[in-house]
Design a protein around this nucleic acid. Sequence first.
RNA 1: GGGCGUUUAGCUCAGUUGGUUAGAGCGUUGCAUUCACAUUGCAAAGGUCGGUGGUUCGAGUCCACCAACGCCCACCA
Length: 868
Amino acid sequence: MAKQEISKAYDPKLHEDGTYAAWEASGFFNPDNLPGERKETFSIVLPPPNVTGTLHMGHAVMLAIEDIMVRFARMQGKKALWLPGTDHAAIATSTKVEGIIFKEEKKTRHDLGREEFLRRVEKFAQDSHDTIVGQCRKMGASLDWSREAYTLDAARNRAVNTAFKKMYDDGLIYRGHRVVNWDPIGQTTISDIEIVYKEVEATLYTFKYSKDFPIAVSSTRPETKVGDTAVAVHPSDERYAHLVGKTFENIPFAGSTITITIVADESVDPKFGTGALGVTPAHSLIDADIATRHKLAMRQVIGEDGRMTAEAGSLVVGMTVNEARAAVVAWLNEQGLIEGEEKTMQNLATAERSGGVIEPIPMLQWFIDVNKPFGRGTIKSLTQDAVRSGKINIIPERFAKSYFDWADNLRDWCISRQLWYGHRIPAWYRGEEVFVGTEAPTGEGWTQDPDTLDTWFSAGMWTFTTLGWPDETADLKTYHPTTILETGYDILTFWVVRMVMMTTYLMNEVPFKTVYLHGLVRDEKGRKMSKSLDNIINPLDMIEKYGADATRLSLVIGSTPGNDSKLSEEKIAGYRNFTNKLWNISRFVLSSVGTLDDRPGESVTLADRWILGRLSEVTAKVTGHLERHEISIAGETLRDFTWNDFADWYLEIAKMQKSENTDRILVHVLTNVLKLWHPFMPFVTEAIWKEMGKSEFLMISEWPISGAVSDENTAKSFVLMQEVIASIRNLRAEYQVEPAKMISVVLADAGMHAVLESQAEVIKHLARVDSLTIQSKAEAPEGSVSAVCGTTQIFVPLSGLVDPVKEKVRLTKELDEAKAYATSLEGKLGNQEFVGKAPAQVVDKMKQNLAEAVDRVKAIQTQLSALS
RNA sequence: GGGCGUUUAGCUCAGUUGGUUAGAGCGUUGCAUUCACAUUGCAAAGGUCGGUGGUUCGAGUCCACCAACGCCCACCA
């Protein structure tokens, strides 16, 4: 025991890095090395951070919550695995690196060539990875680094190719010419969820294709109309019924020649515009669907470069879409075909990463067919069933609705991307031949598909590829399905749904049993943290300033799953104060006790019984909360116990008790408090543990078991004592009484008399009075003031100091309050319906309260009459 | 257009299945403090739980409607 050397304030910097290094060196982050026989497993995969830079507060929340979960499980004696990794984030990383290269060298990826570009991206990804991994360590994350994975490493590539081939063989992956979201800036297809909509003003033009054409159509994009092949109307629209089925051939339109068929389609809103929709099958996903239903021709008038194609005709060929729009509008004006112009607000589809305006363009791409039956159902049905059946449980529950909104509307997923950084599609072509396999085909003349897979394809397989799939490894058997997936709710549709899709199909089981969704961290004004607002609170800065433990606590206490939380530096500073409090509690215990024997000690005094009972109660509560993933409440419960009960009350009382038995209790409570806090604040608790001279890590110590809860009388007696002390303090403060004045405590209850008598020394000490008399009969000393707590009255003799008039006013006010309360209780208890229907417990409690209230009224009245 | 969330003390938020007089932290105010901790202690002030109805013996909690704010999805061409 090192009494004197313990520093006055806890300095995280002196402990954190060293402690983490020691944990890591111990090998206990790897469940294979954990001591004892561990039957139950707990597994969680780290949602892999993108290798696009550094960690932000969102990552910090994720790491804090997951570390709490895994440390708790580890201490509970489970085989606890938390598996780390990073995500290559194809589009995000490519875009970022392309941006850097362009800024520094004014070169595009095409200038560099595929090989050189990939070399650059890999260098960037490696640097970013190293930063991220370092940051995870700073946070104290007990990740099993020996199992670390990368979404784009060789093992994952083999898994991805295996999955692709299997899906292709089952007919679930197909290659097709379809309208996809094309990003002309990023030069790649993107999926629906990678689109962000921006509200912009647009002009809605209403016009006819030609003077003779019978129907006017409306469009904000007249330039695409050179690609129209039909006009769709609602089947019940009588205005156009006579035209349905007719075809108008070779209409000269804006330098092109178009042929338009009139079709009837349910999807058309007869109330919008003219009730007729000009169908552009090649450049609108909706129109493409209409075209499929009516077997309409498709004319591509916009190319991959975002310019009008030769097919678009002589007027606009080679123009950008914006130039073409102006040209077509000018042409329409010249021809006098415009019937109306209207300003409207429009949601413009842009690519999340590059910012490019999305052009729907027909292209030959790879897709996953979500509706094709393969024996156990379809991808879509399996995805729906996983949650509907209860095999996956979502916290908070309401997000199940978002899940179904997405799963129920699942559409074929375009998985090919025209990027270089990613898993290359394992398909090879030779003329008309297509080969799909995990390895290149033998023979001459094969060329591999130049495209790569959507990053979510490999991310969707994360829970099992990290455990060794496609090999049937021991890890896979032991840890899959994983126990829980913890991630931000903003990623539910991106990732969670994709994981369920891929896992239910490939593994025939769910990827995880529970999904815990945390909220977003916002700044103190509730805004998203962003570079442009310059309101980013960097977790590393906070760790540097306040320590990792304080940073962690500020992120998990006071926030609930699925709800956003606001973070301010003051909050973190507040928890820094708490880590210091815990440090000082320990400093006191360690420097004052004569024994470090961790045996509970015997409950000799009221305070002993009380603190041991409270500890037991709190242990049970915290354990329950953590098991139900109620992290915030667990933390608050512990904080309350640690600071208010243990430090402020028991420690103060222990200073007077000074016995070996008290020492034992102090050590026992401290030991348990450290264990209970460890998942939340691993560094400071481990540091204290070390100061206690423990040879083994706190990290692998056993989670405390709740013992006997103290009886009701103990709790009641202790609370009474606390109230008496508080009342005496108040009276002393209010009337500025010297400590040497006599205090009398008058009791209405003989049982409590004995209790207070036995605690006289404690009361005297904590209330700071020199003498104390405890009586069982109310005899108000002359000229004294009083306070009432419960059925007990406290008198402080103050002859000459008190203004009887003021005192009377005060007491009268108190009397009124007590009477009003008693009356309200009487009223309730007089209500037969209430007494008949309310649970007995509630009624009994109210009766008891009423009895106390009546006593209280009497006591105040006695005091009042003594005054006059 | 569809869906979801939030609304409780000056601020940030808890409040499990409806059940005593609604809680915490921060902030404010007052007092204290060489004795583990000023990164401290003790206490006080501060709320008719967004509004209106309803169900119930009993509603912050359940239901309906309304309002404000926020988010997600769809994209009317």
